[in-house]
Simulated scan of single mutants.
Amino acid sequence: MEPSLEVVTGRRQRRRFVDLARRFRGGSACYVPPLTGEIARLLDPDRNPALRRARRRLWIARGPDGEPRGRIGAYWDPRHAEALGEPCGWFGFFDADGPETTAALLAAARDWLREQGARALLGPADPDTNHECGCLIEGADEIPYLMMPHHPPEYAGWLEGAGLAKARDLLAFETVAERMREPLARLDRVADKALARGGYRLEPIRRRGFRAAMKAAHEVYNSAWRDNWGFLPLDFDEFWFEARGMKPLLDPRLAWLAWRGREPVGVIVALPDANLALKEIDSRLLPTGILRLPFLLRRIRRIRTVMLGVKAEHRHRGLDLALVQRLVRCGLEAGYTASEMSWVLEDNEVMVSLARRYGGRLSRRYRLYRGSLA
């Protein structure tokens, strides 16, 4: 029987909506639940500045007995029309118990997005490409790195069965210390020459002065990513809303800004993979998780590179390699043993080549789907 759909309103319902992910994904030993408060904050229009410029709607699907059978969100930001070349809306926060529920949820998202003026929908993304996105289609047998999603293997087939087709694949590359030591000596030489020849200097990003560093990173971000498919430039308040969540995990040995004079021209940021710590406490801070978390975080030995970019006018000068070299060298000296670069667009030949050249193996593949609303 087709489920009934309930529109989510109010803070309490939003938290229930967020918690449903555990119900549908918790059967996998590799799933790491998000911190409920963080996702609820992302969905709160009073706290998330992006929702002052965009609109979103959330639904919970219920069976005749009132039990949840799935959930979905739809997100409309007119700025995506310019970024993607067509008026596209997004769907995300998707979970379902089968094909029938999937079809009903997508129908609701399609109808609402069509009313907003969209002519196509993309997803899953929570809620767009600046956050967790893509449906996991390869690599479900490993615990994902920080801020990367994990889905039951059936989801891809259900989405395709509901009429969606591949838009883009997003790739994750993992490397371990043993594979990095040999190319690192060569990378050291390349980095030294690039910094000297270009007049660049690298400075660590620290907790003290973090906001000022993020203003510089924001400038690089909007320039370096502007030609990427699906990229949406962020105002600083939107960028800061996301970036400040990194501060508690910040290790200055893993985060660097590149400067030429007073101009920020490149950035690389990796974070200790807090997913391993959150897994230990089932992502529950109370009653004792908040006390155990600092100890667990100190034991983490793998990192995820969440940001790597160089302004267009400073590319092809070896600066990207200099940033990677500094991260790898300092990360190894700090005792980290594994790293993931994610996500990387499948057609970003420069980044795919860089990842493979320095020992990266394709560890996970995520798929963004598209459907017409015409």
Score class of each variant (00 low, 15 high):
225 W>A: 07
164 L>W: 04
162 A>E: 01
365 R>L: 13
175 T>K: 10
16 R>F: 10
217 A>C: 14
351 M>G: 02
251 D>A: 08
26 G>M: 10
200 Y>G: 05
249 L>F: 10
366 Y>H: 10
173 F>I: 05
176 V>S: 14
123 G>I: 00
282 D>W: 15
176 V>F: 13
142 E>T: 15
19 D>P: 04
286 L>M: 14
1 M>S: 14
199 G>A: 05
124 P>M: 08
120 A>M: 03
249 L>W: 02
261 G>S: 00
306 V>G: 12
223 S>A: 15
261 G>F: 02
95 D>A: 09
332 L>S: 08
292 R>W: 08
176 V>N: 12
67 E>G: 15
219 E>Q: 11
92 G>Q: 00
368 L>Q: 06
8 V>M: 02
363 S>E: 09
318 G>F: 05
209 G>M: 02
31 Y>V: 09
292 R>G: 05
302 R>L: 01
22 R>A: 09
200 Y>R: 09
285 L>A: 03
11 R>P: 03
41 R>K: 12
346 E>R: 13
221 Y>W: 01
148 M>W: 14
53 R>N: 06
368 L>V: 15
345 L>H: 14
9 T>Q: 06
270 A>K: 02
301 R>K: 09
322 A>I: 04
206 R>Y: 01
291 L>D: 10
342 S>P: 06
191 A>L: 01
116 Q>L: 11
374 A>N: 10
228 N>P: 12
54 A>W: 01
313 E>N: 05
74 A>I: 00
264 P>H: 02
285 L>M: 13
321 L>P: 07
291 L>W: 11
136 L>A: 08
236 F>W: 04
93 F>N: 00
54 A>G: 06
85 G>P: 07
363 S>Y: 03
266 G>V: 09
267 V>K: 04
55 R>G: 00
330 C>S: 15
330 C>H: 15
153 P>T: 13
133 C>W: 06
366 Y>W: 08
12 R>K: 14
201 R>T: 12
59 W>D: 00
33 P>G: 13
139 G>Y: 07
55 R>K: 10
28 S>A: 09
20 L>K: 01
315 R>A: 00
275 N>K: 09
298 R>Q: 15
221 Y>F: 09
322 A>D: 03
264 P>A: 08
320 D>G: 15
87 P>G: 07
255 A>W: 04
159 L>H: 14
183 P>G: 11
249 L>E: 00
248 P>R: 07
252 P>N: 01
314 H>P: 00
163 G>A: 03
52 R>A: 08
163 G>N: 09
224 A>C: 13
219 E>P: 02
300 I>P: 07
185 A>I: 15
39 I>H: 12
65 D>R: 15
11 R>C: 11
178 E>D: 12
283 S>M: 13
249 L>G: 01
33 P>T: 15
206 R>S: 04
138 E>I: 05
370 R>M: 05
261 G>A: 01
362 L>C: 11
306 V>N: 08
353 S>G: 12
115 E>N: 01
288 T>S: 13
214 M>T: 12
216 A>L: 05
352 V>Y: 07
253 R>T: 09
363 S>T: 10
195 L>T: 04
229 W>D: 06
9 T>H: 11
81 A>K: 06
308 L>Q: 02
82 E>N: 12
339 S>A: 15
107 A>H: 02
171 L>R: 07
95 D>W: 05
23 R>F: 01
161 G>R: 06
151 H>R: 11
60 I>E: 05
255 A>M: 04
73 G>S: 08
244 R>C: 08
153 P>C: 07
308 L>Y: 05
235 D>I: 03
